[in-house]
Design a protein around this nucleic acid. Structure first.
Lengths: 356, 356
DNA sequence: GAAATTTACGCAACCGATTGCATTATGAAT
DNA sequence: ATTCATAATGCAATCGGTTGCGTAAATTTC
C-alpha cells in the first residue's frame, strides 16, 4: 500500500560502504572527492533509484534556488513574454521560478507575497496589481535581505530595483503622432491613474497636448478597468459626446481592438473619422482591421533584464546598486489605425519592430 | 551583515517555557491543546516574528501541499482559463500550485516533469507538448503513487485520469456546419496529427465528409505548427490550388484569424467565397472581422474538473477510479465567418455560450 | 474517596542532506 | 626511515518542525 520508503544518500553510502558525507560531496561534484568514487556513487544512485530530497537540502542550506514571480495576470502577450525572458535567464543561472498571480487584486497579491515568503524564495520579481498602492507586503523580504525587483507596474521604492519603460515618453509619442496626423480632439482611454503606468502615459498625453496648444478636455479622458465591457461602454460614451473626438490613445491593444470594433459597428471609420493608437504591440494589433498603431513594449527584454538584475543581487555582486531604476527602450509602431494622411506605408513598415 | 537567525518554534517554546511539541500542535490548532495555550503561542509567535519553515515541515511530513501543473504554453486564452479553474479549486482545498511550461517541447516537458518530481509535488496536472508521444517521464510519479491527471492534450494511459472534450464530435460538428452552409470543398488546417486533439478533430472532419458523400482531398489537409507564419503559408498554399476550397475548418482561433486576414489581403471574401470555422472561442474570435464561428472550449470548467479529480485522489477517496476519462461538454458557436446563407443572426446569437 | 476518564503537555526519535573539522591514506621530499 | 604536504574520506552536529507514545494533572463517576 504505502509506497516503499524513499532511497536516500544513506542507502547509497551503505551500499558502497562509505559515509554520507562522501556521497553528498560526490553528488555535488566536490573537488575533494576521488573521481572513481564519484562514478561509483553516481552509478549506484541511478541503480537504486535515488532522488534528491529538496527539502532536506533546503532546510540545511537555507536557500532554495527558487525565484518567485508575481504578476497581475497571465492572459496578456506582454506578461507571457516577460515570463519567457525571466525564465530564460533564471534557468540558465540554475534557478527555478514559481509564478503567482494576483488577479489584479491587492488582497491576493498580499497573500501571494506572504506565501512566496514562506516558501523561502531566494528572490522576487514582481509587477503590482491594479489597486496596489503600498508596498508593505514586501517588507518581510526587505527585512530578511531577500532582493525584490519590480517591473512594469511599480511604485517608487528605496529598497528595490525597478525596471520600466518610459511611459511618459510613450504617451507623449503616441499623442504627438495623432496630432501630427491632424487630430485636434484626442481622447484617452486608460486604467486607474494611481497606477504608475497609466499615470505616466496620461502625463505624456497631456504634455503633447499642451505642447501643441491643444486644450485638455476632461470629457475625453476615460478611466476604467480595461475589460471588454468597459471598452464598449467607453466607446459609446465618447460617441454620445456633442462633438466627437478625432483620435483616441488607448492604453492597451485589446481594449483598442474592442473600441475599434464598437466604432465600426456605429458607422465610424477608423482612422478617417477617428484615428487610434494602442499600446503593447500584442498579436491582436496586427490581426484586426485596420491594423493598430501601437507602442512596442519589449516584454522579453524586460523579463531578462529584471532577472539578470535579481541574480546579480543574489550572487552578491557588491557593485550592483540595489535601488536603481532601469528604463528599457520602447517605440512607436505605426500601422493603419492612425494614418489619416494615407502616407505610403513603407514608412510605417520600416518602423515595424517585429522579429523576423 | 548576515540577517539575524530565523525565529523557530524553539524560540516560542523557550519564551513560554513549554515544549516544541506543544507549540507545533498549538500552531496546527490541534484539539489536544488548551485554548489559552494556543492563544499565548499564537500571540508570541506574532510578537517575535515567527515564520513557518516549509522545508522542515515538508521534510518531516513527506508531503508538500503543492500541485504541479504542466502546460505546453501560457499564451493562450484557453490555457489561462484552465489555470484559473485549477487555481480556484486547489486554493480552496489548501494546495498551492507551481506552473511549469514545456514550450511545446518534449525535452523540456521531460525535464520539467523530473523537476516537479524532485520538488515532491503531491500531485500533477498536465497537458502534453506538441511532440510528446510517450509518457515515460511520468513513470516516477506513478511508481511513487503520485496521482497525475492529464487534460486536453493527452495520451491514452492506464494509470491516470484524463479530462478532455470530444474532439471528434467537435470536428464533426464544425465540418457538418460548413457543409450545411453549402460548402463542398472544405479544407482543414491543423496541428500534428499524432497529437490526440488534432487527430480526433481530423477524424470528425473526415466523418462529416463521408457522411455527406463528400470526397476527402489530401490537398485540402494542411498540417503545420500553428504559428503565424505557418498560417500565412497554409493560406497561400490553398490559394495556389487549381480549384479553391469554399470552406476551412481551422484548429484554433488565432490561426483562423491569420488565415482570414491573409485571405482578405488576397481579395477573398469571408464567408462568401470561403467560410471559416475556428476552435477554442478565444477573445480574438469576436474581435476580428468577420467574427469567427468557433467551438466553445470551456477552459475554466476543464481546470476545475481536473483539479477536483486530482484532489479527490489525494484525499484518498477510494471510490474514485484512478483511470477514467472525463469528457466535458463543448459546443459550436455560430458567428459570421461561416454564414454563407446569411441566416438571420438571432439563431447564431442564441447559440452564443458566453457567460453573462 | 478511590477508580476511571479525560485533558493537556513533554520526551525524543525522526525526516535527509550539508559541512566544518578531524582523520587517514598516499606520495613526495629530505 | 622520517617528515611533511596533499588527497580522500569520515564524524557528528545541524537545519526546524512533526508525531507516537507516555505521563501528570484535572475532572468525572459510583
Amino acid at each position: 500500500m504505502n509506497p516503499k520508503k524513499d532511497v536516500t544518500i544513506y542507502d547509497i553510502a551503505k551500499q558502497l560502504n562509505i559515509s554520507t558525507s562522501t556521497v553528498s560531496r560526490a553528488l555535488q561534484n566536490h573537488p575533494a572527492i576521488n573521481k572513481l568514487t564519484k562514478k561509483k556513487v553516481i552509478a549506484t544512485a541511478k541503480e537504486i533509484g535515488y532522488q534528491y530530497n529538496t527539502f532536506a537540502g533546503n532546510l540545511r542550506k537555507k536557500s532554495t534556488s527558487i525565484i518567485g514571480v508575481m504578476v497581475h495576470e497571465l492572459n496578456s502577450n506582454f506578461i507571457t513574454s516577460v515570463l519567457a525572458g525571466i525564465e530564460k535567464v533564471t534557468s540558465e543561472a540554475g534557478y527555478d521560478i514559481i509564478i503567482a498571480h494576483s488577479s489584479e487584486s491587492y488582497t491576493k497579491e498580499s497573500a501571494n507575497a506572504l506565501n512566496l515568503f514562506h516558501k523561502r524564495v531566494d528572490g522576487l520579481i514582481a509587477s503590482l496589481a491594479y489597486d496596489t498602492k503600498n508596498l508593505d507586503h514586501y517588507l518581510p523580504f526587505h527585512q530578511k535581505g531577500i532582493p525584490v525587483v519590480f517591473f512594469d507596474r511599480v511604485e517608487p521604492s528605496d529598497k528595490s530595483t525597478v525596471v520600466v519603460i518610459d511611459n511618459t515618453k510613450c504617451g507623449y509619442q503616441a499623442t504627438k503622432h495623432l496630432i501630427e496626423q491632424g487630430c485636434k480632439r484626442i481622447a484617452h482611454i486608460t486604467g486607474n491613474l494611481s497606477r504608475n503606468v497609466y499615470a505616466h502615459r496620461f502625463q505624456g498625453y497631456k504634455k503633447a497636448l499642451t505642447e501643441h496648444h491643444l486644450p485638455f478636455d476632461k470629457k475625453l479622458l476615460i478611466v476604467n478597468d480595461l475589460g471588454e465591457e468597459a471598452a464598449r461602454n467607453a466607446t459609446l460614451q465618447l460617441l454620445r459626446l456633442p462633438s466627437l473626438p478625432d483620435g483616441i490613445f488607448i492604453t492597451n491593444d485589446f481594449t483598442a481592438a474592442v473600441v475599434i470594433q464598437t466604432l465600426k459597428e456605429n458607422g465610424i471609420v477608423v482612422p478617417d473619422d477617428i484615428a487610434i493608437v494602442g499600446f503593447n504591440n500584442d498579436a491582436i494589433s496586427k490581426l484586426i482591421e485596420p491594423k493598430i498603431t501601437t507602442i512596442n513594449y519589449p516584454g522579453i527584454e524586460m523579463g531578462e533584464i529584471a532577472a539578470r538584475q535579481l541574480i546579480a543581487n543574489l550572487k552578491g555582486e557588491e557593485n550592483v546598486q540595489l535601488t536603481n531604476t532601469i528604463i528599457i527602450r520602447s517605440d512607436l509602431i505605426i500601422r493603419e489605425s492612425s494614418l489619416k494622411k494615407h502616407t505610403p506605408l513603407s514608412i510605417a513598415s520600416n518602423n515595424n519592430a517585429n522579429k523576423k
